[in-house]
Write a protein that binds this DNA or RNA. Structure first.
Lengths: 237, 237
DNA sequence: AAGGTTCCTAAGGATTCCGTAAGTACCCTC
DNA sequence: GAGGGTACTTACGGAATCCTTAGGAACCTT
């Protein structure tokens, strides 16, 4: 239920990989197809695809045609991606049954937000239940965070960071994974940037400056969200 | 379901009486109007009308014109009645915002079943109870807004914007979601346009220019409707 | 054709966010 | 414990975002 399946259709393996990491790190299961033919097969076979991410420019059967054929056999929401922004192509895409249209280049946030909107629109409501632990509440749908009943304002970067960490509660998340999830695959080296954002986040949600309570550091690897659990008190042996 | 109210608009008192008895015996409450002007007044005045039964052939303002004016101030379903069965008039009526078209003479059963169908069709998607909070009232069916018991005129754009925000009370709505909802998927980049409309809306419904009370801005994301609640206190660095 | 709305675009100024850099503190290995 | 690498903290200025206003185009009514 929470792990929705997305069919990613693009002929460029570079693009596929970038999108796949983005999507998987956002909690989706990703199935890939290189051509329109493959995509149609995939839908017929797999069946339980929740959304199709379809690049228009593809060899063989074009994206428009693929869209039309998919629509013939399924009501799955289709989000079309294209570099062109001509009116004609847009109209064609919608006529072929596309549900939304996204022009390259686009930001990760925009992509995810569109996917969410589309899924919500089509299938009732896809809502992630709010997270709550002692003293910290994170409402993903409302983009709201409270620390001890005190509302706290987070910037978009901080919130996305927290969202990712909380959704992977308990598991250490690598630096580059976070960087990729926040700013895209081309920024996986900029660790210092991440550190600053982590710092700002901590300053807002950690109550005790001496002892972190939620966002723990995984040395030489990344960060991990885990509430309450204190580090063992330092003790000289 | 309970006692739905129907506004019956016809200049012929004979016809009115006949229809009134039919409708009341079918369980509806009937309000009458002799002319288009009266009909518009009736809608504007109180009494949430659930459906309008409108004869096209009337002295003074014609039925088409009445239809157009009603549609401007209300989303109430309109069922048009006419002796003519020309294609042209039909098209005119639908263009003016009519929801269905019935040619005289017609049987009682047909009238009632059309009314039922129309109410079902409309109430499934669009019959939304009015929103009300301290100082702000939004009547979706009648397209009316009052701020502190003071009626406020909103333009179509402004009203649609407010409608979308209010229906998602508490949840932040992304820029592109609003843009898409207001102007279609091909305008999802024109954020400045949205800002201006937001500004105009705020100017009309926000009382305190220093502190917004309803339409809050979610930086780098979109807007959120939430009454009274103050901005979360920001921690000073 | 004149008057009135509504809406789009542009331009300014204000605000918020974030990337960079520089100094400090911490951790692990040797 | 010393040293090198890693992590934290803070601050500042550029960049992006947001707000406000106004002028004129496009549309509709009188």
């Amino acid at each position: 239920m929470t792990t929705a399946k997305i069919l990613l259709v693009d002929d460029d393996s570079q693009v596929r990989r970038a999108l796949r990491t983005t999507l998987t790190s956002a909690g989706y299961t990703v199935v890939e197809a290189r051509t329109g033919e493959e995509a149609v097969e995939e839908i017929q076979a797999e069946g339980a695809v929740n959304l199709v991410l379809l690049d228009l420019k593809m060899p063989g059967m074009g994206g428009i045609e693929a869209c039309r054929r998919i629509r013939k056999i399924s009501d799955v929401p289709i989000l079309v991606i294209s570099v062109l922004r001509t009116q004609e192509e847009k109209v064609q895409a919608f006529d072929a049954g596309a549900d939304d249209y996204l022009v390259k280049p686009f930001g990760i946030q925009e992509l995810l937000s569109r996917i969410h909107a589309l899924r919500r629109r089509v299938s009732g409501s896809e809502s992630i239940p709010p997270y709550e632990s002692v003293g910290l509440k994170v409402d993903f749908e409302r983009r709201r965070v409270t620390v001890g009943d005190q509302p706290v304002h987070l910037t978009p970067s901080e919130f996305e960071l927290l969202r990712y960490l909380v959704l992977n509660e308990g598991k250490p998340v690598a630096h580059h994974t976070l960087l990729q999830s926040l700013w895209g695959p081309e920024h996986t080296r900029e660790i210092q940037r991440l550190r600053v954002t982590i710092n700002q986040l901590r300053r807002k949600i950690e109550t005790d400056p001496e002892q972190v309570r939620y966002v723990h550091t995984e040395h030489q690897f990344g960060y991990r969200f885990e509430p309450i659990v204190q580090k063992p008190a330092k003790r000289r042996l």
